[in-house]
């Protein structure tokens, strides 16, 4: 039987509690169950994008319209979004939380995937604060990330270090 470490439903509950109105996303292999859980919850509008670089600018527009969006993309998509993060995230002091699929993450090291190896140095270089989720017991880091983004008016990342569990098995 599969060990449940991080339930997508737990994260969606946190998003609902935070009053999130829109999730802007390009699905990846790590977030399938997250995507399903958001659709099932029905309280949040999902905005699919063709390329991750669109996500932060759409979030900026939604924020200007008074909404509270989050971005859900993979680490490789974050790299593709670099200039959008610079210009329309950091550059406009956008208080947005980005859930980043930590593809390739191995908590014990020995990480062959550069998408994983570069993620934390990348965020440090750009000055983007981040929080790591690996277990349901880490869910209290989500409200911390939202408070951080609002307090400093800045993009904050939540790194999702494991695949969300399929709760149906």
């Amino acid at each position: 039987m599969q060990e449940i470490r991080l339930r997508a439903s737990g994260i969606v509950n946190e998003l609902v509690r935070e009053g999130i109105t829109h999730v802007i996303t390009l699905p990846d292999s790590e977030t399938k169950f997250m995507y399903d859980a958001i659709r099932k919850a029905g309280d949040i509008t999902v905005v699919p994008v063709c390329r991750e670089g669109e996500a932060i600018p759409i979030a900026a527009g939604l924020w200007a319209a008074g909404k509270k969006p989050v971005v859900i993309i993979q680490n490789s998509g974050l790299y593709e979004s670099g200039d959008a993060l610079r210009g329309l995230g950091i550059g406009v002091n956008l208080p947005v939380v980005m859930f980043i699929g930590y593809r390739g993450y191995k908590r014990h090291g020995d990480t062959p995937d550069t998408a994983a190896r570069f993620l934390e140095p990348y965020l440090h270089t750009w000055g983007v604060p981040f929080y790591l989720l690996e277990y349901d017991s880490d869910l209290d880091r989500i409200p911390m990330a939202f408070k951080h983004a609002a307090r400093d008016s800045t993009p904050v990342a939540v790194l999702v270090g494991v695949e969300y569990a399929d709760e149906s098995v």
């Binding site: 829109h22 600018p57 527009g61 008074g66 329309l88």
Partner: peptide
């Protein structure tokens, strides 16, 4: 993309 965000909001 920014315009789409405002339009949806």
């Amino acid at each position: 993309s920014v315009g789409l965000g405002v339009a949806l909001g």
